[in-house]
């Protein structure tokens, strides 16, 4: 059970919604913070938007429906070995949708603000490298839509 009072979140993702992709690397987070402080464009590591092996979905947090502190505590429930949660890459649902991706709410009692970005795939493509390259193309495009990096 979550420690927080669950807010009502709409089952559909609205185009203006802001979505957060989690960053756990202290080194990458430090680089991004420095880039933002220098008012330079963010060079977001594309691996953050590449789906895990054998998957075509990216987990994101729906940033508009909870306080950042609440989302941080939800993220830290899935603590990672040798890593501390650093923050989120913020993208707009509309930007991601315009790239051809679907965005679906996937809330659960454990995480009421969870959503998935679904990367389009070619059902007739079976070459692993072609599948991977397709995912990297989308990772590159989604990373370019990142509006900012917000720390926890």
């Amino acid at each position: 059970m979550t420690d927080f009072k669950v807010k009502t979140v709409p089952p559909e993702i609205d185009r203006p919604e802001l979505l957060g992709r989690q960053e756990w690397s202290e080194r990458q987070a430090g680089k991004l913070v420095r880039q933002q402080e220098a008012n330079r464009p963010l060079n977001v590591p594309k691996n953050k938007f590449k789906p895990p092996v054998n998957s075509n979905t990216l987990s994101v947090d729906r940033m508009d429906y909870a306080e950042r502190n609440e989302l941080r505590k939800l993220a830290e429930k899935n603590i990672r070995e040798n890593q501390a949660f650093q923050g989120w890459y913020i993208v707009c649902a509309a930007d991601v949708m315009d790239l051809g991706c679907d965005v679906q709410a996937s809330q659960s009692p454990q995480h009421p603000y969870h959503a998935d970005i679904i990367i389009p795939t070619d059902p007739n493509e079976f070459d692993p490298k072609a599948i991977k390259d397709n995912q990297i193309k989308f990772a590159l495009k989604i990373a370019q839509t990142v509006r900012k990096f917000v720390t926890k």
Binding site: N43, P45, K46, N47, K50, V53, K132
Partner: peptide, 15 residues
């Protein structure tokens, strides 16, 4: 920017 790209791959990323 150099980082792991998953699948035992390496990314060399210019911006």
């Amino acid at each position: 920017n150099i980082y792991s790209m998953g699948d035992a791959d390496i990314a060399i990323d210019f911006c």
